[in-house]
């Protein structure tokens, strides 16, 4: 049995060892926010937090996450209050098709926690730190604007 805490809730799952964390979240827990894009660690659509760090759930075997705390996009809002990044993405129109958005927001949420002084984050630094999240619609300027809005 694999014990996971996901968005604050404890779960025990009986999983084939081949099951990735992404498939466990989507197919076993019904949390379909994290998306399966490339399934090979190249696009970032599956980004979630494990023990507070952003990781690619498509390359993480669920069985190797025993006891870990996982946060997905479904756990980011505080009740009915959206996370500031979620609001900023809406206000800045930082998406077109939306498929990469959950990964973008989870990646950005981790990014803001990785730097000591958010105000010192340059646009170039945000771009570099977000380079693991691809957007095939090319919404990058507005994604950058949304993150910049939360930075200040």
């Amino acid at each position: 049995m694999v014990r996971l805490t996901v968005n604050g809730e404890r779960h025990e799952l009986d999983l084939d060892p081949r099951t990735t964390l992404l498939d466990a979240l989507r197919d076993h827990l019904g949390l379909t926010g994290a998306k399966k894009g490339c399934d090979h660690g190249q696009c970032g659509a599956c980004t979630v937090h494990v023990d507070g760090r952003r990781v690619l759930s498509c390359l993480a075997l669920a069985v190797a996450q025993q006891g870990r705390e996982v946060m997905t996009i479904e756990g980011l809002a505080l009740g009915v209050h959206l996370h500031p990044l979620q609001l900023a993405f809406i206000e800045c129109d930082a998406l077109q098709c939306g498929f990469c958005t959950a990964g973008q927001i989870m990646s950005a949420a981790a990014l803001l926690g990785e730097v000591e002084h958010r105000r010192e984050l340059s646009d170039a630094s945000i771009r570099e730190r977000m380079s693991g999240n691809l957007c095939r619609c090319g919404a990058y300027p507005n994604i950058l604007a949304a993150i910049r809005r939360v930075r200040t």
Partner: peptide, 9 residues
């Protein structure tokens, strides 16, 4: 090299 997510893993 890598993305921040990959460097974390």
């Amino acid at each position: 090299g890598m993305s921040p997510q990959l460097r974390n893993m």
